[in-house]
């Protein structure tokens, strides 16, 4: 034996699933949606995503290099994840400088001011998006039409906005269109099926558990079901399944619940806490969608529930062994 014996306390095995590995898996899980989005909206999608990712990585690098002490952590891919998620929350037609501003807000303000990965209380990509939505409302709500099969009925509005303003009913778009993304919207939210594929990949890689996404979508569906029942359900029974399905598939419901609400540092530490968190997101989203000022409420709902996470962590403890 050439070297001295190495000594350390047990355990002597470590998982091969490192932080970088997890973040890379999230990026991989987002790729199908990126592909579908590119097909739907054209190469603009790639342009926005590339700018967003590059800006996020560069901002994180610069801040770690010049403003905070400690090792560089850009190799852990977390800035890439934030970049892709931020891009997925923007319309494909957005000017490049707005993307850069969004990336700055996401990384510099929402993430690094709190100490970087694992310490940020709010989802950085969503903070970036909401900032842009408030600062640049026109650019942020000008949706390009899909390259093929444009919808006259929607006339450049997202399905959620169109339904909200009473232009069309929730049945205007077929389930097939909603699943495949043939509608205007943010570049990552239009392809429900591709996002679900990513969800399955994340479950298979054990990056996330099913609890938060499924609970959010179930809460939304249930909420929509009761709203339908309370309004026109009796005269139009088809609405009882159309409205829930529409709310689950349209807008950022799937993107938000699978990729944003499950963000590690901004979601509760326990399964039980996660379920409470998820129910909260589902309810707040539906409240905003149906009665709020904005047609889409996913990002606000997630940010609001992010604020509750420390409280949930304090009061919701895991099920202790041997304690009734």
């Amino acid at each position: 034996m050439a070297n001295k014996l190495i000594v350390a306390p047990a355990p002597h095995v470590q998982t091969s699933q490192s932080t970088a590995c997890i973040m890379r898996d999230v990026v991989i899980a987002l790729m199908p949606a990126l592909v579908v989005s590119t097909i739907v909206f054209g190469v603009d999608v790639l342009r926005v995503t590339a700018i967003s990712v590059a800006a996020c990585v560069v901002f994180e690098f610069l801040i770690q290099k010049f403003f905070v002490n400690g090792p560089l952590t850009i190799s852990n891919w977390s800035a890439v994840v934030t970049g892709v998620l931020l891009a997925f929350n923007l319309p494909a037609s957005i000017p490049w400088w707005i993307v850069v501003i969004g990336a700055f807000v996401a990384i510099a303000i929402a993430k690094m001011t709190f100490g970087g990965l694992g310490k940020n209380p709010f989802n950085p990509a969503l903070v970036g998006r909401v900032f842009l939505l408030i600062a640049y409302p026109v650019q942020m709500t000008t949706w390009p039409m899909p390259v093929q099969g444009a919808f006259d009925a929607l006339s450049g509005a997202t399905p959620l906005a169109a339904v909200k303003h009473g232009a069309v009913g929730p049945d205007a778009l077929g389930v097939q269109d909603l699943l495949l993304g043939n509608m205007p919207g943010s570049l990552g939210e239009v392809a429900a099926l591709a996002l679900l594929l990513g969800f399955v990949y994340l479950l298979w890689r054990r990056v996330i558990t099913w609890h938060i996404p499924v609970t959010i979508l179930a809460t939304m569906a249930l909420f929509a079901f009761f709203v339908a029942l309370g309004t026109k359900g009796t005269e139009n029974p088809a609405l009882l399944w159309q409205l829930p399905l529409f709310h689950v598939l349209a807008g950022g419901a799937i993107l938000g619940s699978v990729f944003m609400a499950t963000d590690y540092s901004t979601s509760p530490m326990t399964v039980k806490g996660g379920v409470i968190f998820a129910v909260g997101i589902g309810v707040v989203t539906m409240l905003i969608r149906l009665w709020g000022a904005y047609p889409e409420g996913m990002s606000f709902a997630i940010l609001m529930m992010n604020a509750c996470v420390p409280l949930i962590n304090k009061y919701v403890k895991p099920k202790r062994f041997g304690v009734k």
Partner: peptide, 22 residues
């Protein structure tokens, strides 16, 4: 002289509860 290499948490309390030391 060091006879082994400690690879655990760099804390005397942790190392002392484990073994003799380096």
């Amino acid at each position: 002289p060091r006879t082994n290499e400690y690879n655990g948490t760099k804390s005397c309390a942790v190392a002392a509860s484990l073994y003799v030391g380096e």
